[in-house]
């Protein structure tokens, strides 16, 4: 009898433990994902940003040593590199310049991308897969090759200038390559699909009768667009803007291939810290600040969204 009860108890326990394990796994997997792909690399970069540059392999100090223990290790870390970033105006100028370029090119991408997404969503249903394909098609070629192709288009002897000279629109070649204008063109071109796709997804879901209803209630075509189409594609617009803004902020390849020597962007500064100065700690500090600049607006936005949703409940 006693044994039987024990067995029953044991069965309960097992089921309970199994259930707990299952729940734990369910919650744990996304967290492990976040931990492995975001938090751990971030902590490593943060740790390097608190170290000092050294002629060693890898080129910073201190290295973690089990024998000396974690206390001694942490005592060696300091915020010197962050102070360095504050002292030289190069860094905040580069952040500001990147911010300006990223914001401007996000706005430009939105201006170019929205009408395309709108046109796609309004196109006859049988055309849409083809149009979608056309938007995605450039991804089949290497990003680097496509940016190089723009060099051929924008250079002084390039297609664009040849066309302008031929058509008489310009009397001498326009200097576009190696200017910030070329960087804008490059970013808008490269990230356009990231803007189009979420907006298209939002617009395609939209019921056409909503526009008719708005017109029926007294809206002109234009005001129906502002009051109904735009608010309903808000989610897509925001997603698209984030998808463009975040990579544009840290962009390195486009400014270094298309921009001039005077195009100041934080990605280039970071590259120089890392490769020219081989100062990994300062490079890491630059990266940590860049991440904070990117993460703060995302978090604020998320919070705002959450609040909005809660107030609706």
């Amino acid at each position: 009898m006693g044994r039987h009860r024990l067995a029953v108890l044991d069965g309960h326990w097992r089921r309970l433990v199994g259930e707990l394990m299952r729940r734990f796994l369910l919650i744990a997997i996304p967290y492990i994902w976040l931990l492995a792909l975001f938090l751990v690399p971030f902590v490593i970069v943060l740790k390097i940003s608190l170290s000092d540059a050294a002629i060693a392999r890898p080129p910073y100090f201190p290295q973690f040593d089990w024998a000396e223990g974690i206390r001694a290790f942490i005592a060696e870390l300091d915020f010197e590199n962050f102070l360095w970033l504050v002292e030289d105006d190069l860094y905040w100028k580069a952040y500001l310049s990147s911010l300006r370029i990223a914001l401007t090119s996000t706005a430009l991408t939105l201006i170019v991308g929205y009408p395309i997404a709108y046109g796609m969503a309004r196109a006859p249903e049988e055309w849409r897969p083809t149009l979608m394909m056309l938007v995605i098609l450039p991804f089949w070629t290497s990003f680097l090759i496509r940016v190089y192709a723009w060099k051929g288009i924008l250079s002084n002897e390039g297609f664009l200038n040849q066309f302008l000279l031929w058509s008489g629109l310009a009397s001498e070649p326009l200097q576009i390559l190696n200017t910030t204008t070329a960087v804008y063109i490059g970013i808008v071109y490269t990230y356009l699909p990231f803007m189009i796709l979420p907006i298209y997804a939002a617009l395609e879901r939209m019921d056409d009768s909503l526009i008719e209803a708005a017109e029926d209630l007294g809206c002109s075509r234009l005001s129906a667009f502002w009051l109904v189409t735009i608010p309903l594609s808000k989610g897509g617009i925001i997603a698209g803007c984030f998808l463009v803004f975040i990579p544009a902020m840290g962009e390195f390849v486009i400014p270094s291939l298309l921009g001039g020597s005077d195009t100041l962007m934080i990605g280039k500064v970071l590259w120089e810290e890392f490769f020219s100065n081989r100062d990994w700690p300062v490079a890491s500090a630059v990266a940590v600040i860049l991440l904070l600049i990117l993460v703060v607006p995302i978090v604020l936005f998320q919070r705002n969204q959450q609040k909005e949703q809660e107030s609706e409940e």
Binding site: D89, L90, D262, T263, S276, N277, R278
Partner: peptide
Amino acid sequence: PQKVQRVVTRLWTRVKSGT
């Protein structure tokens, strides 16, 4: 040396970008 390298890189950035 590390410190001089930093000065040189910084000066080079100034030469190229004016900043």
